[in-house]
């Protein structure tokens, strides 16, 4: 039985209710992303070959083609992030395909583990409990009913906090674009953050994300989240393998299935310098705990504080008035606080 956190329970309950209502209203029998049902992707690493015969893996090419019109077009010259020197500009590295950039929202890692070559398409995991969305200081990252986590480029200031709190360092910043240019470009903001949005627009239309459609090996399967989770677990059992993404950071909408352990993959990624610890080139760390989830106790405290205060203050006020009355103080309750 899958362990379910309290917050996952809340979200799933609300999401299931909302999706159910939509389906009933439409009289539709299908439950997919178009109905706001949580969706997910299974990425089967036994099938991905990195499109070895292609210059660019077809999933990456499809992502490029689908999203090219949304790539940043910075206004130059770009100002430094005062008082620091420098800024993040990827606009002259648009062709990079060995990492995530504002111009490349999906890339394929290649690593050798125990003599086997493993190819792993990497992009946003679309967490169930996205720390980026919870902590965005401008509230412009949405966790949608279909499971996608989407940054609104029109409201993003590019502070890059989302990248810093993402366990995989996924969102990438481009300077010289976005809202900050219209306010105080020298003093605050740094551009706009970019990442995969699970082709939210296509999913809304009941279609698959572009990368899934483009994969010639059938290595990616997209569908209802619970069905995809079952598929990943079944496939893992079939090959005696492992699943990654089901519990990391409180659960995600991306399930990798591999015949070799993800601990070994993560180790090999580092040893072979496929990842360098910098954002946009993440490993596959295990035991990724959701750090916002860990603060739920204090968050609950914030919600309970009014209740505690009302009871305590009511009692104190009553005692105070009674004491004044006993002391024969029949003033006009004379307090001025």
């Amino acid at each position: 039985m899958d362990k379910i956190s309290r917050r996952s329970f809340f979200r799933r309950t609300v999401a299931a209710g909302a999706a159910g209502a939509v389906i009933m209203a439409k009289g539709a029998a299908s439950a997919n992303g178009a109905a706001g049902q949580p969706m997910a992707t299974v990425i089967d690493l036994t099938r991905c070959d990195g499109c070895a015969n292609q210059n660019t893996p077809l999933c990456v090419a499809a992502c490029q083609s689908k999203n090219r019109s949304r790539f940043p077009e910075p206004v130059k010259p770009i100002m430094d992030y005062w008082p620091r020197k420098g800024f993040e500009d990827w606009s002259d590295k648009k062709g990079l395909r060995d990492r995530l950039t504002p111009y490349n929202w999906l890339y394929v890692q290649k690593v050798t583990v125990d003599g086997k070559t493993v190819y792993a398409p990497r992009r946003c995991m679309h967490c169930d409990e996205p720390t980026c969305a919870y902590l965005c200081p401008f509230g412009v990252i949405a966790k949608n009913g279909d499971g996608s986590v989407v940054i609104d480029p029109d409201g993003c200031f590019g502070g890059a906090k989302c990248r810093d709190v993402c366990p995989w360092g996924v969102p990438m910043r481009q300077a010289g674009v976005g809202l900050y240019l219209k306010l105080a470009p020298k003093l605050g903001g740094g551009g706009v953050m970019y990442k995969c949005d699970m082709c939210h627009d296509l999913v809304k239309q009941g279609k698959n994300p572009a990368c899934v459609t483009a994969c010639p090996q059938g290595a990616m399967t997209f569908g209802d989240r619970s069905a995809m989770k079952q598929l990943a677990e079944a496939r893992s059992k079939e090959i005696g393998g492992y699943v990654y993404g089901a519990s990391e950071n409180g659960g995600t909408s991306t399930f990798y299935v591999s015949p070799v352990s993800f601990a070994a993959i993560d180790r090999a990624l580092k040893e072979q310098k496929v990842v360098d610890g910098k954002p946009g080139r993440s490993g596959m760390p295990l035991k990724v705990e959701n750090k916002v989830d860990q603060l739920d106790g204090w968050a609950t405290g914030v919600l309970l504080a009014p209740v505690a205060a009302v009871f305590a203050a009511g009692r104190a006020a009553y005692k105070s008035l009674a004491s004044e009355k006993n002391a024969g103080d029949d003033s006009d309750k004379g307090g001025e606080s």
């Binding site: 405290g301 504080a305 205060a309 305590a312 203050a313 006020a317 606080s337």
Partner: peptide, 27 residues
């Protein structure tokens, strides 16, 4: 932020309820 928020929320609600009941209206 959370720890301080617990204190602020508690103290603020206390202030309103306590002085509201006592009808301390000097402010």
């Amino acid at each position: 932020h959370y720890v301080a928020a617990v204190i602020l929320v508690f103290a603020s609600f206390w202030h309103v309820v306590y002085h509201g009941i006592r009808r301390d209206n000097g402010l």
